[in-house]
Amino acid sequence: MKRKLALLLIFLMTGVLITACVEGDKPAGKDGSPVKLVIAARGGLPCGCD
């Protein structure tokens, strides 16, 4: 039982890591690939104030 649990855990963690690698930070700007600029902006309507 313990061994199986350990195996299950390892399996799950590998899953997490794989997703992390696939989804994770892709370096930008090298090899002529485009640089990514991220803008934190107001959503919804374009303009408003409090």
Partner: peptide, 13 residues
């Protein structure tokens, strides 16, 4: 620190 922030993993965790 684990540079996971621009993935869905933090939310899932």
């Amino acid at each position: 620190k684990f540079s996971l922030l621009n993935t869905k993993i933090p939310v899932i965790l």
